[in-house]
């Protein structure tokens, strides 16, 4: 088997009678940045939640570093999840913990790091997202953009093999989107492996090496961003991408 970091093989997922994912496959190499786009309710978020086993797939296999993770016993799942970072649409910061405690918690409780080292590392990650000044603030005292950057720092602190971004900017006020995208772009340039569900096409164009267009639980088309934006083969892809560019392209120019 070749050296893929992550291999998704033909996964299916249904909630009740509704099939949300219907045979999705792709591969991810170290350092890849994949952007997943598609209409809402297409299973993009479900795909991410299958990958870190929050909602394990019904069928199909997922390999992380050539080890299958879809057949693991329950007790092994947390050790897989700590290798896969996740950034949530609504931030999901631990509301009762300060910014730095949010970042340090996993280090102390999961990685069993001693507190001094954990807080040092947490501080480093907060600096990386430009929030070292706000380390003692609670989530309720942070803006949406700041919250999401803490969310990214929390994922980064675990030194994950890859990070999943689930619409990280869609719950933000327009003027706060930039700061989060900036952090994500920096991460991509540093070589972080990322899968991003997002409609920020500017971000996709500048750092993604592949864009995946999904609809109704299936991958319709995938390819390098420029190719997909200029010469998509599938009419649905063209239609969707032009709609998205209309909506999001405007705000990027401003």
């Amino acid at each position: 088997m070749e050296e893929n970091l992550l291999i998704i093989e033909n996964i299916e997922k249904a909630f009740g009678s509704q099939k949300v994912l219907d045979g999705v496959s792709f591969k991810l190499n170290k350092g890849d940045v994949k952007v997943i786009v598609g209409p809402s309710g297409t299973g993009k978020s479900t795909l991410l939640r299958c990958i870190n086993l929050l909602n394990p797939p019904d069928k199909g296999r997922i390999y992380l570093q050539n080890t299958e993770i879809t057949q693991l016993p329950h007790s092994k799942i947390p050790s897989i999840r700590q290798k896969i970072g996740m950034v949530f649409q609504h931030f999901a910061l631990f509301n009762h913990l300060s910014a730095i405690d949010n970042v340090a918690l996993g280090l102390i409780k999961v990685k069993k790091m001693n507190k001094t080292d954990a807080y040092e590392k947490a501080m480093f990650e907060l600096k990386r997202v430009g929030l070292d000044q706000h380390k003692d603030k609670y989530p309720a005292q942070l803006s949406g953009g700041q919250k999401q950057r803490v969310g990214i720092a929390r994922a980064l602190a675990m030194d994950p093999l890859l990070i999943l971004f689930d619409e990280p900017t869609s719950a933000l006020d327009p003027e706060l989107i930039g700061e989060v995208l900036q952090v994500m772009q920096n991460l991509a340039k540093e070589g972080m492996t990322m899968i991003c569900v997002t409609h920020e096409m500017g971000f996709a164009k500048s750092v993604a090496n592949e864009v995946i267009f999904m609809e109704k639980g299936k991958i319709v088309e995938q390819g390098p961003p420029l190719k997909l934006f200029t010469e998509a083969t599938h009419p649905r892809t063209r239609e969707f991408l032009s709609k998205i560019s209309e909506l999001y392209g405007e705000s990027e120019k401003k």
Partner: peptide, 24 residues
């Protein structure tokens, strides 16, 4: 989402309840 975020950094179910859900 609070529990899912706890899972996402590798906490198990009981730690997630003890450290994240219960204090809140």
């Amino acid at each position: 989402e609070q529990i899912e975020a706890a899972y996402s950094i590798g906490l198990n179910k009981w730690d997630a309840i003890r450290l994240i859900v219960f204090p809140q």
